[in-house]
Design a binder for these strands. Structure first.
Lengths: 152, 152
DNA sequence: GCTTGACCTCAAGTAAACTTGAGGAATTAT
DNA sequence: ATAATTCCTCAAGTTTACTTGAGGTCAAGC
């Protein structure tokens, strides 16, 4: 049983074309440790095809507001030495699902609050759901109590 | 029927404390046209209490990845001359709901895809849902065809 | 009435996520 | 073999969303 040799023959330009991101972005992602490439004899990058999947994950995650740092963290569960297999993806998946579910909850809450504001007319500050500081959305990075309107 | 005079007597520091954002951020938001303040005789900012709601909306929206530019656009539906009333909120709400729903769909799709990758084991590139370029997630700002893996 | 703290403006700095450009080497096309 | 591409590195510029700081004013307490 001979081992299948991974073909690593895509240039940056090729990957850029296939993935839709700029060459400069590929350089940047590599510098940041998000993707990897080997080099040919002339020091030019050569990519394995799995780089496309990594880029897809990066772009999909970014679109929903996940930072490159977080994405890198998640991608670190995937090996660089071999193409990701089932359990690799399972690890990544597990890590992200909870986070994604939370983000979905946040968004849904915001939508519901905004929808709710139609009903309340936002004429009463105290009744406005956007004013409720006791939910997840109200707790920003600052950890501050948003919208204390007790002396209205 | 005498008109109720709006009290505008909160200082930046007061608003900062109540909203949990820095004074510098309030200045910044004002400069960007996201919030407004009147001035007292000594040129110091004085806020109406509705500024807290605007800040709440800003922060909630940011949390889910909406840019200040988009937020400003949405907030522009609210008047600055009077406290937002039912129909003001209704306009804002309508504008945002569709967008929020789309974002929720995107997130859910990403979650499902990632979850799906467990099932497919991502051993087959063509079967991997992350590779499907024909969905919303696959179409990035670039509009490029992500992940053309036809020559795998 | 004077000091202390809050406020003012304006300029510059910061971090994230890239892009642009200069100067030069490798690859591909003819 | 040579020209046209593509690629390389490294430095600097860009945008978004703020923060920090300098130099000076305003207001509140004693």
């Amino acid at each position: 049983m001979r081992k299948k040799i991974r073909s690593a023959n895509w240039s940056v330009g090729e990957v850029a074309k296939r993935s839709g991101v700029n060459v400069s972005t590929l350089h940047f992602y590599e510098e940041k440790g998000l993707i990897h490439a080997s080099r040919n004899s002339g020091n030019q990058r050569r990519y394995f095809k799995d780089v496309l999947r990594r880029i897809a994950v990066i772009k999909a995650a970014q679109k929903v507001g996940i930072s490159l740092t977080e994405i890198k963290q998640a991608l670190s569960f995937l090996p660089t030495s071999h193409a990701p297999n089932k359990s690799d993806w399972e690890r990544l998946s597990k890590q992200w699902r909870a986070d994604l579910e939370q983000r979905i909850k946040d968004l849904t809450a915001l939508k519901d609050k905004i929808t709710g504001c139609i009903g309340c007319g936002c004429l009463s500050l105290k009744a406005c759901p956007l004013y409720n500081p006791n939910d997840h959305l109200g707790q920003q990075q600052s950890g501050a109590v948003l919208l204390n309107s007790s002396d209205e």
